[in-house]
Nucleic acid binder design. Structure first.
Lengths: 344, 344
DNA sequence: CTGAAAGCGCTTACAG
DNA sequence: CTGAAAGCGCTTACAG
């Protein structure tokens, strides 16, 4: 016989028998101590201790019509950018006795079906969505399936009324550009994120607006394609190298791209910041240790995760809706990858 | 009234009514199609489609005496080293209709209690443990609580009989040292992982053994303390700089430390590989793009995750035990951070 | 191949 | 404050 036999665990009825009370009283002592006399509570607690009782969540959830799980939809689990956000989410949620279920929206096989499964309320009590590229209707009401509340974090869906925790991407991009302008740069380029991504769009807007404010040229060929990844930064560097007339400062929409960009430039003998200044976005851990260390826009990633989790909890528990979308501030962190341009 | 009303979802009884069969038949058609006639199955499937039925996992799990969840115990969720492993785990497990629950073993508050909770079989059907630093008895049988099967991945507990998916750390370290020896280095140092960690110990063993095989000095002051993190690599570099008699090649037990090490050396005008060669371990994404690109020992992280997940599944499903621990091979990836020593 | 019925382990109105 | 009892939505021997 299998040593792993679930039926060995004590049930609430075992505790009740040991304590000499009903299962109802045990249940109350555990979940609503105020409804039980101090004396009874003590007896029950002793019985819980003695039996080693632990609640069966499947049973509790079935009875309470909840799932005890929060699903986090991540665009790409293997991207380290998300790990700290997940960490923030997990710390708040597991403190609130929720399971954190993680689903990768870019999972190759049958991702759609799987995500849709998660969206049904018998699978999760709520969602935190880090991917703004999903079709909005899958979160929507309006069809026959009830859907659990969803909170967007980092990314969001334009025009959606769903709550979100975001940062000020336009301001962040503008801070990056303003920094370069103040250093004396007038020929500034931009490596963009993936097309259609909301972050890409906002950071591009912030970039363009700041350039225009400074009366600097906004040149189409200085807006390089990218997708936030390291390799796309390498490709952008190749595009930069291929230009005859090059920008002497580049703002990359992610740190990963900035690192790939600098890496490829270095391979071709172009020096940062002497030949070209580079600013990133995110402030991932390596930014502080890259060679050169990377000037970037800092995102409070743990706070983003924690805030999203707390907001979702408020949404799940509170009947009313004092909950509002939050936009967190970002900071410019100046390091070695930016300097005044060489005198031409 | 709350628009998010779970009771709206169709139940198995709704499908049964629509199909004109019993709930038992619906259940069978869904989970054991072979036990139902083709005709009935078609009728049931049509009814499922029509009603939009989705199984309630809490109910199924309660009835089946399982949880549908696999817990992954991660030493530090915000460490990007683990994200690709998690990705491998998640892809296999969600394909098998398991939820992936992630718990951070270094979570500040009440981590112990929380992890213990997860260890009870009514919370998870199995565990994948990435932290070899937990006390073994918490996984053990022997007390009154049944425990779900656990598989170790990457790390493990020395002397434990639990199954594991690991890499050959001794061989990996030896490959790193042999590479340096072949380049002509004879003064070789080592930056270690956290004390007592099994990976630290094995890689240190491999290092020492390879040095001895090459008849090279094994000097205590050339074994630098570390903990796998970037900042600890920075500290190791400071220790290196403080030596009068320095090794001219250093094998770091993680890529993160190697990057921190090189970063700090660079700050002090020491060139890699001209002044000192550096080898890392892991082959994280940045290794290929650091300046200089990092020579390192490649770990198949996605495969580690997938293998651990599949092994756990086999353990959960199969009554017999053909399942065995697996040690995956590693490769040396030669890049720019290593070269022959300068002629002294 | 199919159905009636029990039961998984809880929680919670309801009654006292 | 406490207990008896119903019921959450499934699955699965058991009987036919």
């Amino acid at each position: 016989m299998n040593r792993h036999d679930p039926r060995m665990s004590p049930k609430i009825v075992d505790v009740a028998r040991t304590a000499g009370v009903s299962t109802a009283t045990v249940s109350r002592a555990l979940t609503a101590p105020g409804k039980v006399s101090a004396k009874t509570r003590a007896i029950v607690m002793a019985a819980v201790e003695e039996t080693g009782y632990i609640v069966n969540h499947a049973a509790r959830n079935l009875r309470r019509q909840q799932t005890g799980g929060i699903v986090v939809l991540v665009p790409n689990l293997s991207n380290p950018f998300f790990s700290q956000i997940l960490s923030g989410i997990a710390s708040v949620l597991s403190g609130a006795a929720f399971n954190v279920l993680i689903a990768d929206t870019q999972q190759p096989k049958g991702a759609d079906r799987q995500i849709i499964q998660y969206l049904h309320n018998n699978r999760a009590d709520g969602l935190i969505v880090l991917d703004g590229g999903l079709p909005e209707h899958i979160f929507g009401n309006g069809d026959r399936q009830a859907r659990p509340p969803a909170i967007f974090a980092c990314e969001w869906i334009e025009g959606s009324e769903k709550l979100s925790v975001t940062i000020d991407n336009v301001a962040g991009a503008a801070m990056a550009i303003d920094h370069l302008v103040q250093l004396g740069h007038s020929r500034i380029g931009h490596v963009m994120g993936p097309p259609d991504n909301v972050l890409t769009i906002r950071r591009q807007e912030g970039t363009t607006a700041a350039l225009e404010r400074a009366h600097l040229p906004v040149r189409r060929e200085w807006y390089f394609e990218g997708d936030f990844s390291l390799p796309s930064g390498v490709r952008a560097a190749k595009a930069w190298l291929a230009l005859r007339d090059r920008p002497d400062a580049v703002f990359c929409s992610s740190d990963a791209m900035a690192c790939g960009f600098m890496s490829e430039l270095h391979r071709h003998g172009v020096r940062v910041p002497d030949d070209v200044s580079v600013v990133g976005f995110d402030d991932i851990e390596i930014a502080e240790h890259f060679i050169p260390t990377l000037t970037t826009i800092h995102q409070p990633r743990t706070t983003i995760g924690e805030t999203a989790a707390r907001m979702l909890l408020a949404r799940i528990n509170g009947g009313e809706d004092p909950v509002q979308s939050i936009r967190l501030p970002v900071d410019l962190v100046v390091r070695e990858s930016t300097s005044a341009p060489r005198i031409a």
